[in-house]
Design a binder for these strands. Structure first.
Lengths: 252, 252
DNA sequence: TGAAAATAAATTGTCAGACAATTAGCTTCC
DNA sequence: GGAAGCTAATTGTCTGACAATTTATTTTCA
């Protein structure tokens, strides 16, 4: 375990990288205990605060966990699916919001991936997945629901569909794609008519999944993708029209 | 910007969470400068080392970057696709290696997602994507190539295919799925025969993408998925047979 | 006057040492 | 035997200091 001496990075970054390599290469296995902070400080010839900064970097990625007390220390953490979901969602959401990713591109990616899950979900969905989807459809049918909650329910329904594939790795990869769309969807104002259309498509998808009819599910998903993109384009068009009006001095 | 007072987490984790919320909610926009460490320490009523640990946590997730000097400080970082790829790959690789995910499950997820890219790639692939794929096929045809390099080239080919979809968000989501398979693929010993079969399928896929024939590309991808899973199952079978022999005391 | 050089100021990076809080294990006492 | 207390190890946090780096300002000199 050695840090790169002629690196331009911070000491704490170098040390974090050295330990990360040990973990990713399998030299440090799950639940293995790292040397104490004092020992690491001595080993790398740095001070304890510097070691601590390095450890916090690793903790931020859920690579280690720490425990106080006599038998405490830093331990290699088994990255759980839950933690991985969380990181996936954080990264995906920021990537989309910070890079001016167009609604169309994000939507295309999301539905392309979701369509990949549909056949598996149709084959393997279990009663709880169907129940979850029906529950969300019921929620969405409440006209008192705010646009934001409508989007949240939309996300929940789609995650249930993805989970129906019975492949946790697939669920993990899709988590970011589905959740990161929520902020973009929140820009849309859902009229009673558009809600009705979406709920109708959600019902068709759920019915198809229940009937294990992958073809119908795919068709409905494609229609939903088209419809969602249309809504997105309408918002963009309205926005640019308003901006143009503003620049010409037209009142609101 | 306030930290949760009755949280069981570390102070540095609470502060990191508070700042992360500000970034994710958009209150701190890209390139905005955070208060200096001394100011943050005063604001949160903690010491500077604690603030620094919090900032390192955020830096580990590429949420901020720091700069020394008079006009330096911590700035909200625009999460680039490159950085997001990296985090995606790290997380995916660890998730698979630490959770005893079966080869089949990981493989199924990967090919399901990749099949979702194929139609888009067939429609939009550009010459550089085809060239990259051909180049990797040529590399793979060299019998002197080690198994590890063969896998690396395999990953490179599939990433070129994914990038051919022309959707960077899709490429981002697939990066983890494709790259994280590499350690699992490395467990397989590729015979000349299996290499030939794989290269043949790679060629068919590339030809189909070049001909913009999404159907043929999908068929070849499915065959490749089946073949890869067969190889994986053979390895597992051989391994369990050997283990059983060992437990009965049979010599190697 | 203009440009180069020196200086000052602000900020992060690093260090040393200390004490608090927590936890496991051991010891002592009943 | 069990409960209470003590001890040791370890992480969590604080204080204060100095080094390194970068920008802005001032001074100096041609």
């Amino acid at each position: 375990m050695k840090r790169d001496p002629d690196s331009s990075k911070d000491l704490s970054a170098q040390i974090a990288a050295a330990i990360r390599d040990e973990i990713m290469s399998g030299k440090l296995i799950v639940d293995a205990r790292l040397p104490s902070e004092a020992e690491l400080a001595e080993h790398f010839a740095v001070s304890r605060p510097t070691v601590r900064e390095a450890l916090k970097r690793l903790a931020a990625q859920s690579l280690i966990r720490t425990q106080r007390g006599a038998t405490g220390g830093a331990f290699v953490n088994r990255l759980s699916f839950e933690e991985a979901y969380g990181q996936q969602i954080t990264t995906s959401t920021l990537l989309l919001s910070m890079n001016a990713v167009s609604f169309d591109v994000a939507c295309e990616a999301r539905f392309a991936l979701e369509r990949a899950c549909a056949p598996l979900a149709a084959a393997r969905r279990r009663p709880e997945h169907l129940a979850q989807m029906r529950r969300e459809i019921a929620r969405q049918s409440d006209p008192a629901l705010s646009d934001e909650d409508f989007c949240a329910s939309d996300v929940a329904l789609h995650r249930a569909l993805v989970d129906g594939s019975g492949n946790p790795v697939l669920s993990y990869h899709l988590a970011g794609a589905v959740e990161a769309m929520q902020p973009l969807m929140n820009m849309i104002t859902f009229t009673a008519r558009s809600r009705g259309a979406i709920i109708d498509l959600h019902s068709r998808i759920t019915d198809a999944i229940e009937a294990q009819d992958a073809g119908s599910a795919d068709t409905a998903l494609c229609e939903l993708a088209d419809y969602t993109m249309t809504l997105g384009r309408d918002v963009m068009a309205a926005r640019s029209t308003r901006a143009a009006d503003h620049s010409r001095g037209t009142p609101d």
